[in-house]
Write a protein that binds this DNA or RNA. Structure first.
Length: 292
DNA sequence: AGCACGGCTCAGGCGATCCT
DNA sequence: AGGATCGCCTGAGCCGTGCT
């Protein structure tokens, strides 16, 4: 970790809001928490430049125009657009000199902030446009209100709102929800086929042949719409079925493995453990102990 | 829509350990 | 003690993805 560096110009109106928070030990170990939050109506010359700050920053443009430099790329932000960045990395943002930038912003950390950031950063761009019905500005306002009148509930409620906020931001990173009406025609019957034949030896080649599609095309379209590759989808089906049998029967692990189409027990156990984080037997025991 | 290729997952064997 | 379960290792080839 490098040394924290920051330079900035405090050019914002008197009506602007800036709230600094010091999270409790509980918040640091359990919650998502706010480090700083604000609503700036910037004045000409406003900018911030920093690096090596252990924080994630979300800036939402209410009005005007701003600029961001991050990871060697320049971005322009207009109303309804936000950025989400890791403040460990060098960054610079500033208002347009004529079309002054109005922003809601929040520095956050804690819980699985890093994971959310990494999911977001998988997308092509660190700047995203929100649609007009986006709840994000409202969530940021709620957070500002919460932070301005602190009481014993503030940290837990802030964490709850931050989860909503991060979820909304992540959803903008995904393509529109898969619509089976516009998905390739072969997909619904293929899913149906897989649901019925998951315990058979299903190869991509065979699937492609059965549904008369190119296997490379099949693989891509499947993942685009379903979110898993065909192989992953089949394995998940098998694991889910195995879980059912582990819960509701006394069949041995070997029998269950065979029933879901995996003849090699140790291979089945490996698959199960990497996905469920428990061995089949441990899963069965945990389930039976958990029952009243 | 199709091709090429590298990564990595799967399959299977075998020995160790656990449990009844 | 013996069957059941698990862990480790290795080679094969399947699959995802970048590119056209």
């Amino acid at each position: 970790m490098g040394t924290f560096k920051e330079s900035f110009a405090c050019h914002w109106t008197d009506q602007s809001v800036r709230l600094i928070s010091t999270p409790s030990r509980t918040a640091r170990s359990t919650f998502f928490y706010v480090q700083e939050i604000g609503h700036f109506q910037t004045l000409p010359g406003y900018f911030t430049e920093r690096e090596h700050l252990n924080s994630y920053l979300i800036v939402y443009t209410v009005a005007g125009k701003g600029y961001l430099n991050y990871r060697n790329r320049s971005h322009t932000l207009g109303p309804g657009q936000l950025f989400f960045i890791d403040c460990e990395e060098r960054h610079h943002y500033a208002t347009d000199q004529h079309n002054l930038w109005e922003i809601y912003w929040v520095h956050i950390n804690g819980a699985t902030s890093r994971g959310y950031y990494e999911q977001f950063a998988k997308g092509s761009d660190h700047v995203r446009s929100m649609n007009v019905q986006s709840p994000i500005p409202d969530l940021l306002l709620q957070l500002i209100r919460l932070q301005s009148q602190k009481d014993y509930r503030t940290e837990a409620l802030s964490s709850k709102i931050l989860v909503d906020l991060l979820t909304e931001i992540l959803l903008t990173a995904y393509k529109p929800y898969p619509d089976f009406d516009v998905s390739p025609a072969f997909l619904p019957p293929m899913i149906d086929y897989l649901d019925k034949h998951y315990n058979e030896d299903i190869r991509l080649d065979r699937l492609a042949e059965l549904f008369a599609v190119n296997k490379y095309h099949l693989s891509k379209e499947f993942k685009k719409v379903i979110g898993y590759t065909p192989k992953e989808y089949i394995i998940n089906l098998r694991i889910n079925k195995a879980k059912e049998w582990l819960k509701h029967t006394n069949a041995s692990v070997e029998e269950i493995a065979g029933s879901v189409g995996i003849d090699n027990v140790s291979h089945f156990i490996n698959l199960f453990k990497t996905r469920v984080e428990l061995t089949p037997l441990a899963f069965r025991k945990k389930w039976h102990t958990a029952r009243p």
